[in-house]
Write a protein that binds this DNA or RNA. Structure first.
Lengths: 221, 221
DNA sequence: CGAGGGGTTAAACAGGTGTTTAAAACAATT
DNA sequence: AATTGTTTTAAACACCTGTTTAACCCCTCG
């Protein structure tokens, strides 16, 4: 493994460093030392620190997708099962087995503080993922559900998953380490989010629920 | 306004800079220049750059709570109305009127990459907020709902709100600026999240829904 | 054999970082 | 009015940053 290409070794070492400290705080010296290569290697093989960062981000997305691939959804399976599988995969990708891996931490930084690598990330990674979810929701929603509602329902599901990625530390401080250890496994959380979302989805199948103005369903204080 | 205390001016200038660039990338020189004070002021009045950062974070939370206070919930109001008001306030705090204000951007950084200021932030800001939500959920859930389920339902609601704070840019790239302009106002999003969550909550009132094992409600593929 | 070139290396470079210092300016008290 | 204590100031300090440079190594090809 130590006999790899120099660019490959730099790329491999850059991942965790950029994920932990961000683009600015990460230093070229630290990356090169971790890779066991000379300081000038970054500029020779990647021209810039920024170019190295962009390459690292792209590689992170590609790598994580290969690590946790979306399982084949049997075409005949009920959409409820498909949704659960989707949520399980999404959550597993975000959380990993022992904390979020550097690939995910790096992508999270990119989501919150987009750089020039973000658009490509959305095109090759986030949008296809979201489209899969939309396809499942299409089977669970009536045909006349407006597009923006389908999207917002998708974000409601993604948002529930993402929260455990983003706020894990704060969440642990709030509910305590014991409850987390007992009830916050990836499987348990996926089960909860699936059940919560499926129950929410059921309402849109009721006739007339889509035509009623929002203010009718609930009095304005 | 320009006649303020030097520490006050520094604190006011530090907020946006730290929010935009993060602790590391923000420079003391930039903060002092924005405040119109001498470079040594930070070290004289706050001892450290880090101390200044911590003070700035605390002030951000306190400030934002004052900017968007939680409206008085009439004790007799139905819990559905209380929940909608809670979601509206939460979303308004996170989004602001023209993009997330620096106070929120700074707190988001603290959530994702906690520093020594995080524990205090949770104790004085996030936990009381979450407790308010729990109190509302207690009125909407049967008395025998286990504690961890109440918490996870709370996170499902918070997570939906937080998603629009964290992933706003990516989300815009996915659904397009037109749809965002037409259907993603704070009020519209609050309405959707409320409706989605209330429908999800209804299932837990059905008798026996809490005793059924998760695997019973959905076949394992 | 030996000339050439891609890859590696240590050293240096120019600029920026947080922090410290000693002198100056100011305010308030005696 | 003199003196104390506090605040402000410009300059310097020591260190770290990304990047460049020129010498060097090693392998291939004529």
């Amino acid at each position: 493994m130590a006999t790899d290409d120099t660019p490959t070794r730099v790329l491999a070492a850059a991942g965790p460093v950029f994920a932990d400290k961000g683009f600015q705080a990460a230093t070229v010296r630290e990356i090169c030392q971790a890779a066991g290569v000379n300081l000038a290697s970054v500029n020779y093989h990647f021209r810039d620190k920024e170019r190295l960062y962009i390459e690292t981000v792209k590689r992170a997305a590609h790598l994580r997708e290969a690590q946790v691939p979306m399982p084949e959804l049997p075409p005949g399976a009920p959409p409820e099962v498909k949704l659960r599988l989707f949520i399980q995969t999404t959550l597993t990708r975000m959380m990993g087995d022992r904390g979020a891996p550097w690939q995910v931490r790096l992508m999270t930084r990119e989501v919150l503080h987009p750089s020039s690598a973000c658009e490509e990330l959305v095109r090759d990674y986030f949008r296809p993922h979201f489209d899969r979810l939309q396809a499942i929701l299409n089977e669970l929603l009536p045909p006349d559900a407006p597009l923006h509602l389908r999207h917002q329902i998708g974000f409601s599901i993604i948002g529930q998953c993402m929260h455990y990625r983003v706020a894990w530390h704060v969440m642990t401080l709030i509910v305590g380490a014991d409850e987390v250890a007992a009830h916050y496994s990836t499987d348990a959380l996926a089960e909860h989010i699936t059940q919560f979302s499926l129950a929410a989805l059921a309402q849109y199948r009721k006739p007339g629920s889509l035509t009623a103005a929002p203010s009718e369903s609930l009095p304005p204080l």
